[in-house]
Design a protein around this nucleic acid. Structure first.
Length: 339
DNA sequence: TACGCGACACACCCAGGATA
DNA sequence: TATCCTGGGTGTGTCGCGTA
């Protein structure tokens, strides 16, 4: 059918689809999986960078044809919205049920089930869940509350590496007796909150912190507004090129290498008491703990509120280059985690 | 009851493997 | 070789539990 379809304006189609999805609050994942048979990432790619029709192969045209067909019938939107509702219901049911299960498991020992989070948020297949609906009494999901010393340890780790390697995360998790997902989430949230703090600070200082400097979407551009060299934590294209301010001595900031032989880490064995204590030995550095304020301050100062798009672009290119160089270099670098 | 914060959904980017 | 697609990673926004 694709072969027979007339030439389509991919740009118009994707634009329209985007509009419809946002207007109706429909996610790319749902749309992709149910309508196009593609993953969310592919949908995002398609919608963000549609290729001209003539440059597409038969297979490449298929999603556009599907989108076109989908757009033609307004009832399709309704159907998708229904599906969304059903998915949500199924998800909630599952969530409750898995919670109750996990709680019984957890009560036995925390290492047990890792499915609360790891259990793939991809609930797209939630349809098989509603079948086994346990007669549970809707137990609420237990919220993880980190102990102060755990937070402290995490903050220290953050100071060392705002973007820790998986290995590091695992180490942290085992040291703190937490799930790796919890550690990951913590770093995720912490970065986010630090960034927000920064933003607020900036505004309060009246440094012209243009709201558009919002870290996120602007990440490409923002990642670069000069702060790069100053090693600001935020704004950089994380995981790729960034040099956290507090990171002190350099480098080895690549987390993907995995070679982060935490050898050095365990070395500093100064009487680790509890979790925190153990971590202290791991992350033994000068008491500059209160991370946010320290790194935040430098960061804020370094930030240039007024960033022209040109500047952003240049910086972005620069970052890209830096990132590639770092990555290339990082391959032979024995990254060690020294605390 | 408001707020802090962990968890998660979603959008996006990029690298790299698969395939036409 | 160009294109398609996946997988992994990030940031943002929001939900909802736990606590002050």
């Amino acid at each position: 059918m694709v072969a027979m379809s007339p030439e389509l304006d991919t740009y118009v189609i994707t634009k329209k689809v985007k509009e419809v999805l946002t207007d109706n609050n429909l996610g790319q994942r749902l749309f992709g999986e149910t309508i196009l048979g593609l993953t969310q990432g592919s949908v995002s790619d398609l919608l963000a960078r549609p290729k001209p029709w003539h440059k597409l192969s038969l297979k490449g045209r298929e999603p556009f044809v599907r989108m076109q067909l989908w757009l033609q019938d307004p009832r399709n939107v309704e159907k998708l919205m229904d599906m969304k509702r059903m998915e949500k219901k199924a998800y909630m049911k599952r969530r409750h049920s898995s919670v109750s299960e996990s709680q019984t498991v957890d009560s036995g020992g925390l290492s047990g089930g890792d499915f609360s989070q790891g259990g793939s948020p991809q609930h797209g297949l939630g349809h098989h869940l509603h079948q086994q609906q346990p007669p549970q009494q809707h137990l609420k999901k237990a919220r993880v509350v980190l102990a102060p010393e755990e937070k402290e340890a995490l903050k220290r780790a953050y100071q060392q590496k705002p973007y820790p390697s998986p290995k590091t995360i695992e180490e942290l998790a085992s040291q703190l007796n937490l799930k790796t997902s919890t550690v990951i989430n913590w770093f995720h949230n912490y970065r986010s909150r630090i960034r927000r703090e920064l933003f607020i600070e900036e505004i309060q200082r009246g440094e012209g912190g243009s709201p558009s400097t919002r870290a996120g979407k602007a990440s490409e551009g923002d990642s670069c507004d000069g702060t790069e060299s100053d090693g600001t934590v935020e704004g950089t294209r994380p995981g790729h090129e960034h040099h956290p301010a507090s990171e002190g001595e350099g480098g080895s900031d690549h987390r993907d290498d995995g070679t982060t032989s935490a050898t050095g880490s365990n070395a500093a064995g100064t009487s680790g008491h509890h979790k925190g204590g153990a971590l202290d030995s791991l992350f033994s550095f000068p008491e500059s703990t209160h991370v946010s304020s320290a790194s935040v301050a430098t960061t804020t100062a370094a930030r240039n509120p007024r960033d022209s798009s040109l500047r952003k672009k240049k910086a972005a290119n620069l970052n890209n280059i830096i990132h590639r160089l770092e990555k290339a270099a990082g391959k032979d670098e024995p990254h060690e985690w020294e605390f």
